[in-house]
């Protein structure tokens, strides 16, 4: 560790703040998502992924479960669900669509 706890680019390969969640995580109904990325700009933990102007789901290694995305989503596409609720990759509610890149 650097003196004083100074952190330089590359020092932290992969932060994992997802372990801070306490039971719920965001889930998205892709059929209602309009790619406005309001969730992306509000997320304090860069846990909303995007490519260009296209919503790409959530990164649950980073998401702390704060629910700000669900609060600000203007179309009601995002809601908080139990960790046990089965979701498609990226936090997509099953049967509501497939993310553009098709990845989780």
């Amino acid at each position: 560790m650097r003196a004083g706890g100074t952190v330089l680019p590359g020092d932290v390969a992969r932060p994992r703040t997802g372990g801070w969640r306490t039971g719920t995580r965001p889930a998205v109904d892709l059929s209602r998502c309009v790619d406005c990325l309001v969730c992306w700009i509000h997320c304090p933990d860069t846990a909303v992924r995007q490519r260009g102007a296209v919503f790409q789901g959530f990164d649950f290694d980073l998401c702390k479960g704060c629910a700000i995305c669900a609060e600000v989503c203007p179309t009601g596409a995002i809601r908080m669900v139990s960790e046990e609720t089965p979701l498609d990759p990226g936090g997509v509610l099953p049967g509501t669509g497939v993310l553009a890149d098709g990845q989780g």
Binding site: M1, R2, A3, G4, G5, T6, V7, L8
Partner: peptide, 25 residues
């Protein structure tokens, strides 16, 4: 000093240290 904030490079100072690093620092 190493990594001054205005030294042209990126650096974070005053970061949070969890129980896995506070003691060492």
């Amino acid at each position: 000093i190493p990594n001054p904030l205005l030294g042209g490079g990126a650096s974070s100072h005053g970061t949070f240290a969890m129980p896995d690093s506070y003691f060492e620092l």
